[in-house]
């Protein structure tokens, strides 16, 4: 059953990255949209993510619950040493979710109040994935020092380093990329389609640049990401697959094949996550001095894992069909 639970954990993280990421990305795209096109972008993303955004964020809850029920020591260690970035991420999630809901459900659409909601929405859409990336980067950066004695070493430098920040920026670019790809299919006029294609390309370039930065930063921080990734066949294959699909989507994006490029973008990001996930599997948390916290060594007792696995299996029977029907129902021109 431990494999079922870890599979759910990995899937929840991937799905949150894809769906939640695309959601944050909608705000990032809006942030980088010129004033005259902002209203169009807002309209498109309202129709595209309005019905589904709440559900997209549930994957985070599922991941957290699996963490604290199934892998409590890993969870509590992360919560202790990455307290500050988690706090900022929470503020971001709060600001973003409420601003998105409030701007749609304010009965009086006043220019001034809408401006406030919009500002909060776009900036928090940027900050939240940045810190999600920082948290993810820090978890494997070996910068968490369980024996640190000073506040800075224990609670600041655990996450404030070149590598984690580079991973954060990479996450932002990927989120924006996912959103732009999604919005291409949701736009209702040719002008917007062109705009979102351009955005997707820019975000893609950013993703490649920040991805390069991640490798560079890993060398600075002595993490040697390149050696890890290219040193095992699974990660290597995944990285090659991601690069191929990147090149393919660059060509296909103009052909208006919205389904294929969506699948391609999703595949690309999944491959990146697979590459890093496999690379240090089963260590979810890698700390200074090499005492890595393995998911297997620190799993909850047998009975808990069994019950958790059963709960997740039964739960997914309820969730997945209704979730698919939700996506299906609210697709444009289904």
């Amino acid at each position: 059953m431990i494999f079922v639970v870890t599979a759910f954990l990995f899937s929840a993280i991937v799905l949150y990255f894809l769906l939640g990421g695309a959601d944050f990305g909608a705000g990032i795209i809006e942030l980088f949209t010129s004033q005259k096109n902002k209203q169009n972008t807002r309209q498109t993303s309202y129709h595209a993510i309005g019905p589904i955004w709440e559900a997209n964020h549930m994957w985070l809850i599922i991941a957290v619950v699996i963490m604290f029920v199934g892998f409590p020591v890993v969870y509590s260690t992360m919560c202790t040493y990455l307290h500050i970035p988690m706090l900022i991420m929470l503020l971001g999630i709060t600001a973003r979710g409420t601003a998105f809901a409030f701007r749609n459900y304010d009965a009086i659409k006043g220019a001034h109040t809408q401006k406030i909601y919009n500002r909060v929405f776009v900036y928090s859409s940027f900050v939240t994935p940045l810190f999600l990336g920082i948290i993810a980067g820090s978890a494997v950066s070996r910068q968490i020092d369980l024996h640190a004695t000073s506040f800075l070493d224990a609670y600041i430098f655990s996450w404030l380093n070149y590598f984690s920040v580079a991973v954060g920026l990479f996450t932002v670019a990927l989120s924006g990329y996912l959103a732009a790809i999604y919005l291409i299919g949701e736009a209702d006029n040719e002008h917007d389609v062109r705009r979102f294609i351009l955005k997707a390309r820019i975000m893609n370039i950013f993703a490649v640049v920040f991805g390069g930065l991640v490798f560079l930063a890993s060398e600075v921080e002595n993490i040697h990401l390149a050696r890890w990734i290219f040193g095992n066949p699974v990660s290597l294959t995944a990285v090659i697959a991601a690069s191929v699909s990147l090149a393919a989507s660059w060509i296909l994006i103009n052909k208006g094949k919205r389904k294929i490029i969506r699948i391609g973008a999703g595949f690309q990001v999944t491959m990146i996550l697979l590459a890093v996930g496999y690379m240090h599997w089963p260590y979810l948390l890698m700390v200074k001095g090499g005492q890595n916290l393995s998911l297997f060594a620190y799993q909850a007792p047998e009975k808990t894992i069994t019950d958790l696995g059963l709960g997740l299996l039964i739960g997914s029977l309820l969730i997945l069909p209704s979730l698919f029907y939700l996506y299906y129902s609210f697709q444009k021109n289904r």
């Binding site: 809850i61 599922i62 619950v65 604290f68 029920v69 808990t304 958790l308 039964i314 739960g315 969730i319």
Partner: peptide
């Protein structure tokens, strides 16, 4: 977590 987490995971569902 491992003891009282069951209702939380069902609550997630």
């Amino acid at each position: 977590g491992p003891i009282f987490g069951m209702p939380f995971s069902l609550e997630g569902v």
